[in-house]
Simulated assay, not measured.
Amino acid sequence: MVQLAPIEAGEPSMAIRQLLYPTPYPSAMITKSQEFGLDPRVLYALMRQESIFNPNATSWVGARGLAQVMPTTGEGIAQNLGIQGFSVDDLYNPVTSIRFGAYYIDAQIEYMNGSLPGAFAAYNGGPGNAERWADGRIVADPDRFIEIIDYAETRHYVEIVYANYGAYRRLYQQP
Results as ranks from 00 to 15, higher is better:
Val2Lys: 12
Gln3Ser: 11
Gln3Pro: 00
Leu4Pro: 00
Pro6Gln: 12
Ile7Val: 15
Glu8Met: 12
Ala9Glu: 15
Ala15His: 11
Arg17Trp: 08
Gln18Cys: 03
Tyr21Gln: 05
Pro24Thr: 12
Ser27Val: 14
Thr31His: 13
Ser33Met: 12
Ser33Lys: 11
Phe36His: 10
Pro40Arg: 06
Leu43Ala: 08
Ala45Lys: 05
Met47Tyr: 01
Arg48Thr: 07
Gln49Trp: 10
Glu50Arg: 03
Glu50His: 04
Ile52Phe: 13
Pro55Met: 06
Pro55Ile: 04
Asn56Lys: 13
Trp60Val: 13
Val61Asn: 04
Arg64Asp: 01
Gln68Leu: 07
Val69Asp: 04
Pro71Glu: 05
Glu75Ser: 11
Gly76Tyr: 06
Gly76Pro: 01
Leu81Gln: 11
Ile83Glu: 00
Gln84Val: 15
Gly85Trp: 05
Leu91Asp: 00
Tyr92Ala: 08
Asn93Lys: 12
Pro94Val: 10
Val95Gln: 13
Ser97Gln: 07
Arg99Ala: 03
Arg99Asp: 01
Tyr103Gly: 01
Tyr104Trp: 11
Glu110Phe: 10
Tyr111Asp: 02
Tyr111Gly: 05
Asn113Lys: 13
Ser115Lys: 08
Gly118Arg: 00
Ala119Asp: 04
Phe120Tyr: 14
Ala121Val: 04
Ala122Arg: 02
Gly128Ser: 11
Asn129Phe: 01
Ala134Ile: 02
Asp135Thr: 03
Asp135Ala: 12
Arg137Lys: 12
Val139Thr: 02
Pro142Phe: 03
Phe145Trp: 06
Phe145Ala: 01
Asp150His: 10
Val158Met: 04
Glu159Leu: 15
Asn164Pro: 08
Asn164Ile: 09
Tyr165Leu: 12
Tyr168Gly: 05
Arg169Lys: 14
Tyr172Ser: 08
